[in-house]
Structure formats: C-alpha cells, structure tokens
Design a protein around this nucleic acid. Structure first.
Lengths: 196, 196
DNA sequence: GAGGGATGTTAATGCTCACTAACAACCGTG
DNA sequence: CACGGTTGTTAGTGAGCATTAACATCCCTC
C-alpha cells in the first residue's frame, strides 16, 4: 500500500488518540484500538510514532502549547485588563467547547508522561496560568499572587467541567453561561485576609 | 495469622484503594500494590472483596452516598434558600478539602465500574445535583432547570479543582476563597435568554 | 487442647498488551 | 522497468496482571 501525500495518517492517529484517551483513559486504550480507529492494524502505528507514550506526549504538549500561545496573544492584543480577562475567558471556553477530549486528557493524563514531557507540559501550563494571574493582578491590586493562582486554577475547573455536562445546553448558551460564571467567580470580592 | 477484632483490614484496604486510585488511576494500580499498601500480599485482598472492580464500586458508591446524604440533610435543616446554598457550598468544600482522593476518583473512574454499580452511582449523583438545583430554583425563579443543572455541574468543577492546586493556600483560606467564588458564580445575573 | 473458621502466603494459570521481526505491496524516481 | 523508501501486514515474544489453588497459621469455642 502506497503512502498518501503528507502525514495525514499521523494527524489522524493523534486525533483518534485524543478521543480514545479521553473516553477510556491512556491505560484503557490499546495499540490495536488506535490502529483500528484509523483503519489500519495496531503495529502500523510504529511507522509514525516511536511508541504509545510518545503519542500521549505529543497530544499533551500540543494542547498545552496551543493554550499558552493563545493566552499570550490574547493578552498582548487586549486594550485593557478588563478586555484581556474577557478574551482569556472566551478563548478558554471556546477551546473547552470545541475540543472536550483534549481538555479531558489534559488534566487527567499528566501522570502517564515521561519525565521530560511532563516537564515541558508543566512549564507551558505555568506560563498560561501566569498570563491569567498577571491580568488579574492588575484588576485586583490588593490580592496576593498565591490567592490569584488558586483562583485561576479554580476557574479552570469550572470552565473545564464542560465535558462532564455534555449536551445539556446549546453551545452558544453554554458559552455565555460559563463566561458570566467565570467572570463572577474571578471578580467577586473574595480576597479574605491571610487567615490567622 | 489470626483475625483482628473487626473488619478494620477491610476499611484499610478501601482507604488505600482510594488514595492509590486517585494517584495512579484504577488501571495503574495492581492487586499487589493494594496488598502492599496495607501490609499484606496481593491475593489477601480476595478474603475481603470479590475483586478489584468490586473495590472500586464500593469506594464510588460510598462517596456518592455520603455526598447525597449530606446534601439532603443540609437542605432539610436550612432555614432559608440562602442558608441552604451556603450550607451546600460549605459542605461540599469541606468534603473536597478533607478527602481530595475521593473527589478525584469520583469524577475520573466512573467508566471502570460494572453496569449496576455505575447506575447506582449515577442515581445518587443525580439526586445530589437535584438538591442543589432545587435550592437555586428558589433563589432564581426565572432560570430554567436545564441552565441551573449546567451551572451546578460547573460549580462542582470549580470546587473539585482543589486536588489540582494542592497546598498552595492554607486550608481555611482556601475554603473561604472557594466559598465566595462558588457563591458568586451561582448568583451572578447569568441567566441568558434561551439562545435564538 | 482439638477443631474450625477466618485470614494469609506462595505458586500456578491464562489473558492482555506493548513492542519487534520478517515479509509484502505500493509509489515515485533513475 | 528495476530499485529503494515508505507504509502496511501477520506472527511472535516477553512482561504484567487479575484471579484461583493449595497449603499454613492463628484465635476462639467447646
């Protein structure tokens, strides 16, 4: 069987991997499952990737990179801190609604990465979080970065909950709901004083 | 080796299982790991449980049951809808902060249950969610139950994010932060009209 | 103080699975 | 039109793992 023009098989495998990993977990998906999902047998996969772990690594690094890059760009383009926050929220929500599998895999499978891949993903994640924290610090000068970081993680949990409540609401409606909930959560007068 | 007074070995196994499942995932934990964690060998487990899946089932049903029961009680005891919402939030937050492993396992491992166990867990979860929806319906009479359900799921995502941002903040401070964020998210004027 | 049930241990057993080997077909290029 | 590189296929191979079997202790009861 001859090769298709480009590495389209490669990207097909990555797509299938994201979907299957999200659905059954990294360990619940076999090489043969992955092959079957793209119309080949299992071992054909080794013509495109060195192994199963490398596949997961590529998926996770790609997601983290896209989020971090998107965050950087949105903040750079924004005219105000308020605008930046709204852009970050809308961007993250769009991502979560468009790619629920990627979001699911992203915060579930970190532990199955090789150490180098895990480091890369963590670095990218940290950068993304700091983008949010920077914007929030401008909006609420009183709050400590530690509190803001915790708040950002909490809002990620809120936004990333989409895959769990799938299909309950039409997409644009869900997007608006998440936007207003996320904004409310981040801009409420929450900065409790450092506990005694 | 003789038996200890009660089924304390049983509960030790359940505790170890929750911790290990949370850390490495159901499929990433072997029977031998579980035995080792409670000071025995792997197969000893079969004296207390019919198998690995039954173990997971018991853990998940127990969590779901505790949450649902706690929800029912808190709402029944509350003097007002406002009070009920605050109680639900505080109760869920305490649970998430006290038992991060249980929370983690709870929304990750549903797919590894037997069909009957999955049904039981889902029924309990639904009951818990409806408890929240009932309270919210009283506070925001205009909103549709569908929107409220989606909002509740989103807030669960927010509250359950604790295990991800572990140790950043002292516990009481974190509890207050989550409370105010959760309340803000649920009581913001978010009820967008049913999209065109 | 003998017997039995509860609880443990070690040694199979049989399955799944990631990965490798050996071989085949296709395509573009000389 | 032969050749080599690319991408597939089927058939191992060896490891890990859930579960079971066979056997050993211990404690409680009679």
């Amino acid at each position: 069987m001859g090769p298709r023009p480009t590495g389209e098989r490669r990207t097909a495998i990555l797509g299938a991997a994201a979907g299957l990993f999200a659905e059954r977990g990294y360990r619940g998906v076999s090489i043969d499952d992955l092959g079957r999902a793209v119309g080949t047998t299992g071992p054909a996969l080794y013509r495109h990737f060195p192994g199963k772990q490398a596949l997961l690594g590529e998926v996770l690094v790609d997601i983290s990179d896209r989020l971090a890059r998107q965050g950087r760009e949105l903040v750079a383009e924004a005219a105000s801190a308020d605008g930046a926050l709204e852009a970050l929220l809308r961007g993250h929500i769009a991502f979560a609604l468009d790619e629920p599998s990627l979001i699911t895999v992203h915060d579930r499978e970190l532990g199955n990465l090789t150490e180098p891949d895990r480091r890369r993903v963590r670095r990218l994640q940290r950068g993304y979080v700091e983008e949010w924290v920077g914007v929030l610090a401008e909006l609420r000068p009183g709050a400590s970065p530690t509190v803001l970081r915790a708040a950002v993680h909490a809002v990620f949990g809120l936004l990333n909950s989409t895959p769990h409540s799938r299909g309950e609401l039409p997409r644009p409606h869900m997007a608006e709901l998440l936007l207003s909930m996320g904004r409310a959560a981040l801009t409420s007068p929450d900065a409790a004083p450092p506990a005694a």
